[in-house]
């Protein structure tokens, strides 16, 4: 399976985010709840994706994008106008944020200094942390959603699923559901599954794109590592060229206890399947 299909408006690819919204996502990481940190990372990623697909004449539909949340309930997790919708073309995401906030960021002033710049920060996804962790149900929901997508887009670059969780499924071992999800494939390759694990285990140190399970702290991390797909060669080259991560051929789409910077880094690598043409 080559993972080299061209991604274009005629042959879009797909990103599906599976977001743990269980009560334990209320725990703090870097001074914010995990739920808030994940929501910021997803909103920022969606913004970057939209901007990447924007051209002078509008947004090109290179991707269909969906967010499935799981916690007290499992299902599509967009806020605002997109609430209840599964996969949405990226132009639909661009034109329907729930709201646009103003935030400040430091930017290069072109002369070696930094200046504050007010930027628009669109919000599509709000933090939620409530209930159990029905991971198997969420993976099954992803399977159903992507089965339909693949039927319609069987020769396209396969979907990338990015799953963010604190790791302890409450509806059974998710291994089978992950394997079933990864068994879906287009003619260009099987679905790529990333597992980003925000562990509660005090012995869990940061591990980025591990190629072996040797230093994983517990069974929860091991299950998520086992379930993650190997990175494609292009993703590894993005990791090396843009994030200075020297990864082996066996590196998997698995991050343990990354801070928000490494979560954002992983999202960037995971959403760069190949060059847009």
């Amino acid at each position: 399976m080559p993972y080299n299909a061209e991604i274009s408006r005629g042959k879009p690819s797909c990103f599906l985010f599976l977001i743990d919204q269980s009560g334990s996502m209320q725990d703090e990481i870097n001074g914010r709840t995990k739920a808030q940190g994940v929501a910021d990372a997803i909103n920022r990623l969606l913004q970057n994706l939209v901007i990447k697909c924007a051209k002078s004449e509008g947004v090109r539909d290179y991707y269909d994008v969906g967010v499935i949340g799981y916690g007290a309930k499992t299902g599509p997790a967009f806020s605002g106008e997109l609430a209840g919708r599964g996969l949405v073309p990226i132009s639909g995401i661009a034109n329907a944020p729930a709201r646009i906030e103003q935030r400040t960021k430091k930017v290069d002033d072109g002369a070696g200094g930094l200046v504050d710049q007010t930027i628009k920060f669109p919000i599509w996804f709000d933090p939620t942390a409530n209930g159990g962790t029905p991971m198997c149900e969420a993976l099954r929901r992803a399977h159903d959603t992507l089965t339909t997508w693949i039927t319609l887009n069987g020769d396209n670059f396969p979907p990338v699923v990015i799953h963010i969780t604190d790791g302890e499924s409450t509806d059974g071992n998710p291994t089978e559901a992950m394997n079933k999800l990864k068994s879906l494939a287009t003619s260009d390759g099987a679905i790529l599954l990333f597992n980003l694990h925000l562990s509660n285990n005090p012995n869990a140190h940061t591990i980025l794109f591990a190629d072996s399970p040797a230093s994983l702290p517990d069974e929860y991390a091991r299950v998520l590592w086992d379930g993650a797909s190997p990175l494609t060669p292009f993703m590894r080259s993005v990791a090396q060229q843009e994030h200075e991560l020297d990864l082996s051929d066996g590196a998997k789409g698995f991050v343990l206890n990354g801070d928000m910077v490494s979560i954002i880094q992983a999202l960037d690598i995971g959403t760069r399947p190949s060059n847009l043409r």
Partner: peptide, 17 residues
């Protein structure tokens, strides 16, 4: 040249880059 074009939020951000 591009300032003369009315743009939605994403096109503004993109042009800023």
């Amino acid at each position: 040249e591009i300032d003369s074009v009315a743009m939605p939020w994403y096109a503004e951000e993109k042009a800023r880059a």
